[in-house]
Nucleic acid binder design. Structure first.
Lengths: 357, 357
DNA sequence: ATTCTTAGCGAAAACGTTTTCGTGTTGACA
DNA sequence: TGTCAACACGAAAACGTTTTCGCTAAGAAT
């Protein structure tokens, strides 16, 4: 087994100095043609590649991006990672992943583990617990140490940094508008109980669309699911809740759900109750994941373009990293309220499938 | 903005030497109580944390694991990552992710990007293209440089390293046995065309189970899908193929599919043809993903325990990294054919749901 | 009074780079 | 013959650590 070769070894072997080797390999014209040839050949033979860690230390940049997300077994988040990895790789960066598992503490631990030189900047989405606690000091502390952050999806005004969000509000408006255009008269909303997250914006969009169309919102038509409990593993509970909801509101002819799980479950229940989709009830769900594509009938959704979000976030971060750093420091030093942090809004798109007419 | 503070700065500020600061912070009893107190207080005040890159360079280990997988928007792979991240974090390691996107070249590029000091070892699953090419030199080259690799799921005998695999063969046997016990007489197999991957083992398991039960395999009951084309985005093609298959083989009363997509599509088609599940046809799919859980009816599956695979793989790798390295080097140097590389087999489990009786 | 310990600290090397600044040799030119 | 430029290369610093070794001074032991 031959360990990776270093400049020093090449130098010793070829009886020149380390500096000469370094220069020869970078093609400096300070070194004679002869020596350069010899050194390059030798290096190639032994497959010399500069040690990244040494470079990182010297350059004080790691060419690595830290991703910190609540969960990875999740269609949306994994598409975002794919987007980030795509442009990161293209631009010469690596990607290191940390999972907060929706926990405040794990989020902090992960940040501290990475913020000590391992990465050049963060791309993250805030954990539920952090959103509940409304404690964002760790983000600000990181930024104050000169490490840029780009937040996506679950963002927060209290932290000044670049952000990439999906237009939850207008996505919901579009969806509900579509149902209204499709002649739905009694549109139900299935949403989450906790109002901290993006769910709130989607609910607001629902209300806005109704109002715009001069429809009076009926609170009976709004079902709030307690998503603190682990729904994924207690599907019966979800199903029962939705079934009761349907039975209490027989007139429902349209459903807008804030995620695809609620949407497909609603379809399942509706079919069970003898309703046909889309004839009797039309359904639209937020988030375009695997479930939507393969449900029967296939589900019309509001796509969030996760991959695109990831790409944009990565570009934003790398642009910032590679722009003149003194500039960035200025922002921080001045604590300039109208500093030009960018907030990118990714437009949603309605993917029409069989669950709507 | 205050950049992260270093030992040197603390030393200068407190008018001691760098070594003294380092020792004081690590609680060396070489330093007097007084000085230690003073230094520790100062360090805490300025939130000193040692620079990871410098430590990596000094210790010649990064405490980082490289994961290289074909795809991340994929339930199985993301559960594996979750498992890896879990134990990695617990044992003080970070996790850096590279995606090969099923491409041989991207796999190599990614490996080279990471193998130059950025990580201590790899956990990877081989890309389809690499399996087709049967070119594994990059794996062996990496191992020869002293960097351990743990392969999972898609492994290959040509590379000597630790491996974690799921028992595809027996998983398939179990599944088909279950169908037979449930009185299925004509069990169809829906598998993939390319015989390189794990699909082959599952097919063999199917055949074995039939034979064990003295059932003669009928080649008409085997449908091979060409998975070189992008099935996910051309569901109609898949659906049509399966429909034709069903129409040609009316006697089918059981289906074993090598992945959940094929299984749910089979269910969809069966229902369309007026067959009820599980009364007329029973279905079992390999891989327990989101689709299975939410299909109607819910799908009985062979679970691969992805998270567990990830955990085992991570433990294997970290054990190797932290065991006396000279030992490991021995294996490589001697190129010992019966060297104790470990091959862990994760047992599959049948998750019974509504698609079987 | 001399030697020996020991406590408390600093200097320096090492990890693997890149880069700046010297330095010695050669040949040309006056 | 002496001066100078150009060429080819090496020494050393720097990035931020840890650790080994050495040094000094004070007190203990002889």
């Amino acid at each position: 087994m031959k360990r990776k070769i270093t400049l020093k070894q090449i130098a010793r072997e070829l009886d020149v100095s380390i500096s000469t080797v370094s220069k020869a390999l970078s093609g400096s014209k300070e070194i004679s043609e002869d020596t350069t040839q010899k050194i390059q050949a030798f290096a190639k033979l032994y497959n010399y590649k500069p040690n990244n860690i040494a470079l990182s230390l010297k350059n004080r940049k790691t060419k690595t991006i830290g991703i910190l997300i609540p969960e990875i077994v999740h269609h949306f988040f994994s598409t975002v990672i794919r987007g980030i990895e795509l442009v990161a790789n293209k631009r010469g960066y690596n990607v290191i992943v940390g999972l907060s598992n929706e926990s405040f503490t794990k989020e902090i631990i992960n940040m501290e583990m990475l913020a000590n030189g391992s990465i050049d900047g963060f791309i993250l989405s805030i954990s539920k617990e952090t959103l509940l606690k409304q404690d964002y000091h760790h983000f600000n502390a990181t930024i104050n140490q000169g490490m840029p952050i780009v937040m996506f999806d679950r963002v927060v005004n209290e932290v000044e940094c670049d952000k990439v969000i999906v237009d939850d509000f207008n996505g919901a408006v579009k969806a509900v508008n579509k149902l209204i255009q499709n002649a739905c008269k009694n549109i139900a909303l299935i949403t989450t109980m906790d109002y901290v997250s993006v769910g709130r914006l989607r609910t607001q969009g629902y209300l806005e669309a109704l109002e715009n169309n001069k429809i009076v919102a009926d609170s009976n038509l709004i079902l709030k699911i307690d998503d603190s409990l682990d729904v994924e593993n207690h599907l019966e509970i979800l199903e029962n809740e939705i079934q009761k909801f349907f039975e209490l509101n027989k007139k429902i002819d349209g459903v807008f759900a804030v995620n695809e799980l609620y949407a497909v479950t609603a379809m399942k229940v509706a079919k069970k109750l003898g309703l046909s989709i889309p004839e009797d009830v039309q359904v639209i769900g937020f988030t375009d994941g695997v479930l939507s594509k393969h449900a029967t009938p296939t589900l019309t959704t509001v796509s969030q373009h996760g991959q695109k979000m990831g790409e944009q976030a990565a570009n934003l971060l790398i642009d910032r990293l590679e722009s003149d750093n003194t500039e960035y420091d200025q922002y921080i030093v001045n604590n300039n309220p109208k500093s030009d942090f960018i907030k990118l809004v990714i437009e949603t798109e309605i993917i029409e499938r069989e669950s709507t007419k």
